[in-house]
Amino acid sequence: MNVAAPSEVDDILAVVKAEHVAFWMKDIEAYERCHLHAPHTWWWSYWRHGGLAIRHGWEEIGERSRQAMAAFLAPSPSYAFETNWDNMTVRVSGDMAWATFQLHYPGSDGPISDLPGTTSLAYELRILEKHDGEWRIALVSVMVPGLDQLGGPVLRLGLDGRVIWKSADAEEALANDDDLVIRNGQLRIRNRAADLRLQSAIQWAAQRDRFLMARRGAMPVIMDAGEGLPTRLWWVVAESGMILFSFGNSHLVEERLAMAASAFGLSPSQLRLANRIVQGQSLVEIADASGVSINTVRTHLRRMFDKVGVHTQPALVRVLLSVAAPR
């Protein structure tokens, strides 16, 4: 491996950082100047909202970049200029170089117009080639774990349930949740039956990361409160080799209930009832909010029992939230 002169490393970093600024400021001409326009260029990316994307050749990469900037990407000075760059490593060998780094984005409303929330952390790689004395990017790799794209307060857990990271709003959520407790550094549920489900879900998530490539998924943890009473729901999420605990994720609930409605033939009114139950409303609260009698709500509930093949409200919730699209 050749030892690069500091000036050459500076030139490489200048190209990498210019590409970053150009992308978030929607400067397509500056963005194009940073890249090698060749058939062998690559773009590899992963993020929670869209999964894996692989693009090959500048013709495709360039066209998709132009479309993205024109259609839905909003200029973001905070992302362009206030992002922190960490763990930067640059290696050079002849006319080839590669740079690895982590980007910590500032909090904002997010520059992608149809998606709320921020992207706080990204792991990135650039491979560059030198042509006519100028460094150009030949490969872009962007991996976004998406901790803050889950929605709501989130904890990251170790294999034994130990809390190793908290989102900014998780501390308040823990303080206001009478059913959760951190005991000897480990997340527990005071209700023994629900805690056993939590520990089982953590072990399930740990098994998703046994090999070189991790698998993802989400398991509901439901605390049975009894018939007609509010349901408590949390999620254990296996994501990007991590075990995450979500206090409440409306996107996951909506996704699972939509799949369940299709699988079991639930009517729109039954789907609305199921959603209210999962949100933690009692049957009395649902009746009051809907302007109907408690007996009407119970009738709808019994019809759902028949369709799903269960006999209790907690079992109904467990079955509905366990329906997931194949991954």
Rank of each mutant, 00 (worst) to 15 (best):
R208K: 13
T118P: 15
S108F: 04
A122Q: 01
A170G: 01
P230A: 04
E172V: 10
A138W: 00
R327A: 14
H40T: 05
A70P: 06
S250W: 14
Q281V: 11
M219I: 15
D114K: 14
D109L: 10
V142W: 12
R66M: 04
A289K: 14
D27N: 10
A173I: 05
K17M: 10
A173Y: 01
G94R: 14
N249D: 14
V319M: 13
R64G: 11
E63Y: 02
A22Y: 01
E254W: 15
G226R: 03
N275Y: 13
F211R: 09
Q281T: 10
L147T: 12
P116R: 03
M143P: 12
A18F: 01
R55G: 02
S246V: 06
L128I: 14
A70V: 01
C34H: 09
A53M: 14
A315V: 00
N84F: 15
D177G: 08
A324P: 04
V154P: 04
G133H: 01
F23H: 12
S45C: 04
D11A: 14
F247I: 08
V15W: 04
H49T: 11
F247Y: 02
R327T: 08
T231I: 03
K130S: 07
R192T: 12
V15G: 09
W85C: 02
F211A: 03
W24S: 11
V92M: 00
S240H: 07
L155E: 06
G309A: 06
G228V: 04
L198V: 08
L13C: 09
R276L: 15
S76H: 00
S293N: 02
S200W: 05
A22P: 00
A238I: 01
A71G: 11
A138M: 08
S78D: 08
Y123K: 05
A4T: 01
Y46C: 02
S45F: 03
P6N: 15
I137L: 04
R216S: 12
S120H: 05
W98T: 09
M96W: 13
S120C: 08
E134T: 11
E29N: 05
L155G: 04
W135V: 01
P145R: 04
A5Q: 15
G185M: 08
Y31R: 01
Q203D: 14
M304A: 02
A97Q: 00
P116M: 07
M96K: 07
G117M: 06
R48T: 09
A206Q: 13
G241I: 10
P111W: 02
P230K: 04
L103C: 15
S322E: 08
D10Y: 11
H131Y: 15
I277W: 00
E124P: 07
G133N: 05
W234R: 11
S293R: 03
P153C: 06
V236M: 05
N184Y: 15
Q186P: 03
A258Q: 12
V317C: 02
Q67H: 12
V253A: 10
L115D: 09
V297P: 00
M143N: 12
A97F: 09
L252G: 06
P106K: 02
L155W: 08
M1P: 06
E171G: 03
V144D: 13
R190K: 13
I127G: 08
L159Y: 13
S200G: 03
A138N: 10
M25A: 06
S282Y: 00
K307M: 05
M1H: 09
L229D: 05
T41M: 03
L103Y: 10
E29D: 09
N184H: 11
Q149N: 13
